[in-house]
Design a protein around this nucleic acid. Sequence first.
DNA 1: TCTATTATGCAACAAATTGTTCTATAGGAG
DNA 2: CTCCTATAGAACAATTTGTTGCATAATAGA
Lengths: 193, 193
Amino acid sequence: MKEDPRLIATRQAALDAAQKILMEEGVLHVTHGAVSKATGISRSTLYRHWPDARSLRDAAFRRIATPPNIPSKTDGPLRSDLRWLLAVLMGALNDTPWGQIAPQVVAAASTDEEARLVITEFMKDRFASVEAVFAAAVGRGEITADVPVDQLIELAVAAPYFRKLIRHEALDEDWLDQHVDLLCSIAKTNSGQ
Amino acid sequence: MKEDPRLIATRQAALDAAQKILMEEGVLHVTHGAVSKATGISRSTLYRHWPDARSLRDAAFRRIATPPNIPSKTDGPLRSDLRWLLAVLMGALNDTPWGQIAPQVVAAASTDEEARLVITEFMKDRFASVEAVFAAAVGRGEITADVPVDQLIELAVAAPYFRKLIRHEALDEDWLDQHVDLLCSIAKTNSGQ
DNA sequence: TCTATTATGCAACAAATTGTTCTATAGGAG
DNA sequence: CTCCTATAGAACAATTTGTTGCATAATAGA
């Protein structure tokens, strides 16, 4: 027996609105009342789906933080793979809801176990994709295995997040070029000593 | 004419409590009512000081994010100066309220101009102190001027923030050693080409 | 010390928000 | 067509938020 389409429609519409509110006004304004006004869905229905404010907010977090699958490119050379992958991650920060919602998740994670899980899983996913790129480069012999890969991965991902979430600086092509250049130069000069 | 000590005492006690609530329970719980209950100060007095919830929260942000003066050490060598300075910044993230409050400020900054100012000014300060270390190294001739200093500064600061705020990983001495090593190796290998 | 000023505490209050419950209705399943 | 169930809407209590007036206590200035 299939799920009632009304349930699905209500959940979807409500979380769309909750997500929008979360991005534009912050977690403070994600309430049953606000979502009701934004969607036309009655408050009582919303309470039936999410019994309290916290569960509504968690649902909004969870929905938006679901990591989209990152297509992988590991055929080398390193600079090319890395630039391509980081462009995808950068694009996600610049142009998808994730970029706008991430700050709220970061904050929630400091007091909320659920949000912490969301963000650490998300990051694990990001790290894995960068790791694959370096592993492939090692496999091709382009860099040697004694490169401090873990540190490089962290720097590779940390920089765009820091720039965007904390400094509110632009993430553009020029910046990305410099960033990739530096990462590659570290990988190469630390390689095979 | 001096300011009435009662004003000062009330502000201080209230913001102490607001800050504590902000750290432990998140921005959602910083309200006049909660602060009143925590301090014994009457709600009406709090409203007289901060007319609405927003101004109360902003005040709490502003108070905790005020950058403590960072003592500078730039007498070299680079590795030593850098390690010393980053240890201070790391300590601030680990052991002061700033480390716990920063996530909330990051989130607020995405929808609140005031919070954005707070954090960008704070970071400007941090960056300046790291810059001084590199500038001194250049001045001593330890590294040359063509090192991509701006990128290095960003990586130097981004890494600990990313680790703490986003990944919730430990910031310990071992990690710091590795981090400083890598930064120095970048600076040296890019130097004097 | 005496007086005028002003911050606080308290209580009462209005307004808005939050959460609950009931009933009628409309949409979907079989 | 009939049964089931999700929703809308209204009524409601409880809590929170913000305001106001007044008595009290602390402070500043003479």
